[in-house]
Nucleic acid binder design. Structure first.
Length: 115
DNA sequence: TGTTTGACCACGG
DNA sequence: GCCGTGGCCAAAC
């Protein structure tokens, strides 16, 4: 994509989420200082066109896997997380407070790598 | 072109 | 701590 759209930014940040950690829609929207948390969800919905985007690591602020219904299989999101060592119980990330990751750690001058 | 709709969040009561 | 409400902005209709 020559011109970075909002989607591109969301995708780039989502790719930076470390394995075994989770992030939230609000955190991503907050770091981008653009749009809203809703748009992050919209972008991720469209992210199935792109490959290699760990959309399963993005949950809502309560740690709930609200996006699970948008995966090919509703149980896939949980299984992928558990495979990375993130325990999920009753559609919620266990110990979410400790595992939540904020893109701020990338630094303010982080340059997004657009493919 | 105007309205509706989202994988949401912060806030006030 | 739960509930209603407003805000957010791009796509679909």
């Amino acid at each position: 994509m020559a011109q970075p759209s909002y989607y591109t930014l969301v995708y780039a940040i989502t790719r930076e989420i470390p394995r075994g950690r989770v992030s939230t829609y609000g955190a991503i929207a907050d770091f981008l200082a653009l749009g809203s948390a809703r748009m992050v969800g919209w972008a991720l919905n469209n992210s199935f066109n792109q490959e290699g985007i760990p959309a399963h690591r993005v949950v809502n602020r309560k740690g709930e896997l609200t996006g699970r219904n948008h995966f090919p299989s509703p149980t896939m999101m949980q299984e992928m997380l558990e495979e990375e060592g993130v325990k999920v119980e009753d559609h919620r990330v266990v110990d979410f407070d400790r595992l939540s990751w904020h893109p701020r750690v990338l630094g303010m001058d982080y340059e997004i790598n657009i493919e």
